[in-house]
């Protein structure tokens, strides 16, 4: 197991390098000159432009810029944005917001998704199963952007149940954005749980559990749910990484100063260092949770062993 984890961690190095280079090249390929754009309507003095361009290595060819960037990164230097702000500061400041949002979203996924899935699965083709089928189909077919605006307008503005935007109400301000962010995955978790439960209810070992005279609760929770949750847990684990990145739309609509917002703003301003820094970090988070999932898999299912 230890060797397996070490090998997987080593493998992340080329993945991270490749991913960061790709993002770097994409930002490089954006049209326009980010330094000139800094001045807005009033053009900057040519000397200032030249100095900034030199400072950020913007005259170098792509590969050299990238090598210099990675060199700095290896020394723990994430670089600065064009206004002189440390990228690392931006990350540490904004990360907690996104982490909270992701935690709320995952809580929704687990609680609502799994409960709905179990209830639908144990009475397959029953009334509740159909309710879940219709509602989840509806949710996944609406783009998250539309969903976010509908939620904001209905629950925030018209009903006034939740804050419309911002993070001034602590955890409460994260409920509505968290639900919106979770919606798609929540529907998926419900469907996955439902299918998995319905399938395992017919398993031979569930029949054995009933033949043993176990109470119905034990038959369902211990012998059906536990086995059915293996694919669900792996999905949720992998989804943590996706949620961190998928927060861009949600954070923008609900005006939450998180990582997603920061990336969105940085892309518009062509802030290469910020975009690459954050996205590379997200790639790492994604890879890390994938590894956690794989390890968890072996814990949940004793038949799986990594050598």
């Amino acid at each position: 197991m230890g060797r397996y984890i070490a090998r997987r961690l080593l493998l992340t190095i080329p993945v991270m390098l490749g991913a960061s280079f790709l993002i770097f090249a994409l930002v490089y390929a954006l049209p326009g000159d980010p330094i000139r754009a800094l001045g807005g309507d009033r053009p900057l003095a040519p000397a200032v432009v030249a100095q900034l361009t030199e400072e950020f290595n913007l005259n170098d060819p792509l590969w050299l810029q990238y090598v210099k960037y990675v060199g700095d990164l290896l020394q723990g230097d994430f670089g600065t944005d064009f206004r002189g702000r440390e990228v690392l500061d931006t990350i540490t400041q904004r990360m907690p917001v996104t982490v909270r949002l992701a935690l709320v979203a995952i809580a929704f996924e687990i609680v609502i998704g799994i409960v709905a899935g179990v209830m639908a699965g144990i009475r397959k083709n029953g009334f509740f199963d159909n309710v879940v089928l219709v509602s989840t189909t509806l949710i996944v077919s609406i783009p998250i952007l539309v969903l976010a605006f509908i939620a904001q307008f209905t629950f925030g503005l018209q009903l006034g149940l939740f804050p419309i935007a911002g993070v001034n109400d602590g955890w409460y301000s994260f409920l509505l954005p968290g639900l919106v962010l979770a919606a798609g995955s929540l529907a998926y978790v419900a469907r996955l749980t439902r299918t998995s439960i319905a399938e395992n209810m017919r398993a031979d070992y569930v029949r054995t559990a009933r033949a043993k005279g176990l109470p119905r609760r034990d038959v369902i929770v211990r012998h059906t749910l536990r086995n059915s949750l293996i694919p669900v847990v792996t999905f949720i684990g992998a989804d943590i990484g996706t949620l961190m990145g998928g927060a861009i739309v949600t954070e923008t609509v609900f005006n939450l100063p998180g990582i997603g917002r920061a990336v969105f703003d940085a892309v518009r301003a062509q802030e290469g260092a910020v975009v690459v820094g954050i996205v590379t970090l997200l790639v790492f988070v994604f890879i890390f949770f994938n590894l956690v999932v794989d390890v968890l898999y072996a814990v949940l299912d004793p038949r799986i062993r990594y050598e």
Binding site: A203, D204, Y205, T208, A209, H223, R226, N227, D301, R303
Partner: peptide, 11 residues
Amino acid sequence: FQDALSSLNPV
């Protein structure tokens, strides 16, 4: 039952 492998819970 006939098939003890599938009739026992694997986990």
